[in-house]
């Protein structure tokens, strides 16, 4: 249960004041902290000093415990590979555990292929060269194909080509769920916590977020869509950090039809690097707010015949790009950058 919803009387606070506040409708931590300080004085009829003491006690009970950067360093050097060697190298080993990585591209650019490649790498057993963990594949667009997954896995891990049982075991480690909407997804994730722990899930793939968001909220309800996206991102990250898994989300692109589009909706645009300044006017969907939530953003660009992967936002990687093709075994990089 999130800290905000904890009832006040369960905390180590002045219970008198807590009782008074409850009678005035202020029951949980959220009710107490989301208020102007004067409100608490009025509601609880106490002096300002007492109100401050009370709020301090409440805060002490729910504030996260600090740790040092050094401790964190020891804990989170883990990476999950995407399966594209050059990309993994550039990212410092792969997708960072505990963070949100996003793939953006036009239809047909190869986003699902990349996801399947990452899925294969995560699900393959350690002896075969994978991360030996479970994968949750959230398939909103109904593009998941078990056969394609095995085909790609065989391409990446030589040992799987002969071994039928290992390949099937790999496929079994991938659980596909099909939520109807963003809120449905968030609910299901909360329910999946047990499964996450039981199956040692290391990777959650969402293909695609844009589809889920657009399905639930049309073009008119942008504000609700943005806040639902933000909530979903926060839940995903919380699970990612808590259980040590990586989240890979797929996003689509929209075309910016000049300034008219900008006036129409409040936040379509400013995805820098993905054609923000280009004349083709393509930009990542879902707006700036979602862009802020994402930790790493990888763009798959297709121009004429040339396809390139570009790292557009990353806390550690320089902004490089390199060419790729889609082959029988998924995404392959043609040359080194």
């Amino acid at each position: 249960m999130s800290a905000a919803k904890l009832p006040l009387d369960r905390l180590r606070v002045d219970l008198d004041l807590a009782a008074k506040l409850e009678s005035r409708g202020c029951r949980t931590v959220e009710d107490a902290l989301h208020r102007a300080p004067l409100d608490v004085v009025e509601l609880a009829d106490c002096s300002h000093a007492r109100a401050r003491e009370f709020l301090l006690d409440v805060a002490r009970a729910v504030a996260p415990t600090p740790t040092t950067a050094r401790n964190v360093l020891e804990r989170t050097s883990l990476r999950l590979r995407t399966g594209v060697a050059t990309l993994d190298d550039a990212l410092g080993g792969g997708m960072r555990v505990g963070s949100l990585t996003e793939i953006v591209g036009k239809a047909g650019a190869g986003k699902t292929q990349l996801c399947l490649g990452a899925c294969a790498c995560a699900a393959a057993s350690a002896s075969d060269g994978g991360a030996d963990g479970g994968v949750i594949y959230i398939d909103a667009e109904r593009k998941f194909s078990g056969e394609r997954l095995i085909e790609i896995a065989r391409g990446k891990f030589a040992t799987l080509r002969a071994d039928e049982t290992a390949a099937r075991a790999l496929a079994r480690r991938v659980q596909v769920i099909t939520p109807m909407s963003l809120s449905d997804l968030v609910k299901r994730l909360d329910a999946l916590e047990e499964a996450i722990i039981d199956h040692k899930v290391r990777l959650v793939i969402i293909d695609s977020v844009a589809h889920l968001a657009r399905g639930e909220f049309g073009r008119e309800r942008v504000v609700q869509r943005q806040s639902a996206l933000g909530a979903a991102a926060a839940t995903l990250k919380r699970h990612a950090e808590k259980h040590g898994l990586a989240v890979l989300a797929v996003n689509q692109v929209t075309t910016r039809i000049g300034s008219a589009a900008r006036h129409a909706s409040d936040e379509t645009g400013a995805g820098e690097g993905v054609g923000a300044e280009e004349s083709s006017g393509i930009t990542a969907a879902l707006g700036t707010k979602w862009a802020h939530c994402v930790n790493t953003r990888i763009a798959l660009e297709v121009r004429d015949d040339r396809r390139s992967i570009k790292i557009v936002k990353s806390p550690i990687a320089p902004l490089t790009s390199f060419d790729y093709t889609i082959g029988a075994h998924g995404i392959e990089c043609a040359t080194k950058p």
């Binding site: 102007a36 300080p37 004067l38 409100d39 009025e42």
Partner: peptide, 11 residues
């Protein structure tokens, strides 16, 4: 401005 809450007169 933190005193300008709608609810109470004391502000």
């Amino acid at each position: 401005s933190p005193l300008l809450t709608k609810a109470h007169h004391q502000g």
